[in-house]
Amino acid sequence: MLDSDTQAFLQTGVSISLAACNAARLACMSRGMGCKVLDGGRRMAIFLKRSQSLELLDNVAATGKVACVFSLPSSNRTFQLKGADAVVQPFDPADMVVVNHHIDEFVQEVVPLGMAEQVVRAVFACTADDLVTVVYSPSAVFSQTPGPKAGEPVGRAS
C-alpha cells in the first residue's frame, strides 16, 4: 500500500507514463492524462488517450503487467510503480475533473521551466470519449530520482 506522502505526490503536477510489453517483450508506452489513487493506496487508476494507446492497451489486456513512472520535473523526484493485475476499463466522464485538474497542475509545473503552454496543452489535449482507464495494484515501488540509489525498491505494496 502506498503511504500517504507518496499518494499525495502522485496526484500533483507530475509527468505520468505507463508501459506494457507484448509477447516479444517489446514495450509500448503512453503519457498519462492524470491518475487517481483508489482504495486508500491499494490500487491506481491511470487515464490514457485510447487513440494514442492501442498497442499499449492490447499489451495490458494480454499480460496485465505494467510499469508506470511519475516524475515531478522541477525536482526530478520520480517513482515507478509496477503491477501485474492491470485491466483496461471504460473512462468515467466524472473523472474528467481529475484529468483537467492534473493538466492545469502540470502546466503550472513546467511553464516556469521554460515550456510553451500551448505545446503542453497540445500534448494533453483530450476529450472524455477518447479516454480509457487502466487500473492496477502496485506490487512494487521504486525510487527513480536520478542518482546512485535510483531503481532501489522503496517498498512493496501489500
Binding site: 507514463s17 505507463l18 508501459a19 506494457a20 510489453c21 517483450r25 517489446l26 514495450a27 509500448c28 508506452m29 499480460t63 503487467k65 505494467v66 510499469a67 508506470c68 513512472v69 516524475s71 520520480t78 515507478q80 509496477k82 501485474a84 521554460g114 515550456m115 527513480q144 536520478p146
Partner: peptide, 21 residues
C-alpha cells in the same frame, strides 16, 4: 528539453520505464 522515455522488458515480461537524460 522534454525528457524522452525508454521502455524495456525483463525476462518475466515485466516492463520497465525510465527517463532519458
Amino acid at each position: 528539453i522534454i525528457p524522452g522515455h525508454i521502455g524495456t522488458c525483463d525476462a518475466e515480461g515485466m516492463p520497465n520505464l525510465a527517463y532519458l537524460s
